[in-house]
Design a protein around this nucleic acid. Structure first.
Lengths: 224, 224
DNA sequence: GGAGAAGTGTATCATTTGTTACAAACACGT
DNA sequence: ACGTGTTTGTAACAAATGATACACTTCTCC
């Protein structure tokens, strides 16, 4: 049995009433699969020909590097879909290995069946397009961010983005350690860079609260 | 007038016969706009509510950094679409400014009209999904690549990827200078790293031709 | 074959960042 | 107020890379 109430809150089916969703699902072929704890759902490199949506429990995506060591990428809990961006596209293979954190129920829909849904319901189509489109945009921004060479540049970009047009005083939403990880640098290096910018009078740092003193010079940093 | 023969070779309309495409287009509302040379088509930050496809000529995407300096991102020639991944998604704004390289004819389709097409024709829907999905995958891989810290790691990843399961001898498809730019490092630094890997016996470099001597140790590099 | 251009190997030094370690400031429960 | 754990500020040294310069090879065109 499927909890259509929960499923209708999934990003893919947002805005669809549970009843309507139930009607839609009756028209197509799908499967519900049960997994135990720590079971492997898909293996990295498997062909991605079905859409998976977590109905119950949560799974984690792990990426295996060349040595076999695995790194956890992200957790996905009900009712979110699984690797939605990889259902279509040139190379339909999972980039990650997916393993259950706990007992899990998965909704599996063949790509061709899911296509039927997309053609039938414009709301779901829009949802899905928005979803992978947003992901592409997010990734695009992330690449732009990663292309900044120095820590100073990353800080400048981050702070200016955070401040926007508003006042020049911002409070960091992350701890330095988290921010350092987001920047892809070490925590002491980040603290040092913040300290230097403070000494040079570009910003004023009081733990999490930062005042941008000289927006002009901060912009200058992004030049090179 | 639209050259449906050309348009049917666009990634979005691939696999559709020119006649069928003509029939589809007669059902919906669209515009064809003409631009002169060096005219601005869209400005960075503009709302992206229409799909643009280049019918004639070519345009370039430029990104403005905080200082106002512009960097050319890519050229788009007929019959390719423009910023297809930004038509949907959370923040529908162009990340780039688009300027014509020469006199250009553009096909403009409102998002709502394009949605009609997507629902009507499963081939076009699949094309479009493949297109933005591929882009997300490409960006995803690029981020993974950028997350390698050292040049040695980038080299290892690049070479192992290039070699695949085949022999251990690969010929670089790019010059060192181009490869260095792709890696986001300087050319001498890349050459130095290659030289060191050679000295350590992991690879054997003869200008563009590289022989991977020790795949095991190359894999090790990707650990840390 | 020779001249010039492009690509490659290498060296030196400056700059940036990672690494490690430790002290100071803060948060929170008792 | 007091300890305890977390977060933040700083320091010293090592490692990696950038910047710059130059010699050498290979290619191409004449």
């Amino acid at each position: 049995m499927i909890d259509f109430d929960l499923l209708s809150r999934s990003p893919v089916f947002k805005g669809i009433t549970p009843d309507h969703l139930k009607a839609i699902m009756q028209e197509i072929h799908y499967q519900v699969k049960n997994f135990g704890k720590n079971e492997m759902v898909v293996h990295s490199g498997d062909e991605c020909s079905r859409l998976f949506i977590v109905l119950e429990g949560s799974v984690k995506g792990e990426m295996a590097d060349y040595t076999g060591k695995t790194i956890k990428i992200e957790d996905i809990a009900a009712p979110r879909p699984l690797a939605a961006a990889f259902l279509f596209g040139a190379n339909n293979r999972f980039p990650v290995t997916v393993i259950t954190n706990e007992p899990v129920r998965l909704l599996c829909i063949e790509r061709s069946e899911f296509l039927k849904i997309l053609q039938q319901d414009s709301q779901i189509l829009t949802n899905y397009l928005n979803s992978i489109s947003s992901r592409a945009q997010f990734l695009s921004q992330r690449i732009r961010f990663l292309s900044f060479k120095t820590i100073r540049q990353k800080i400048a970009h981050y702070l200016l983005d955070l401040a926007g047009d508003r006042l020049a005083v911002v409070e960091l939403p992350l701890s330095q350690a988290q921010l350092a990880e987001f920047f892809g640098v070490t925590r002491p290096a980040l603290a040092r860079a913040l300290g230097e910018l403070d000494q040079e009078g570009l910003i004023q740092v009081q733990r999490r609260v930062i005042r941008i003193q000289d927006k002009g010079k901060m912009n200058e940093l992004l030049k090179g």
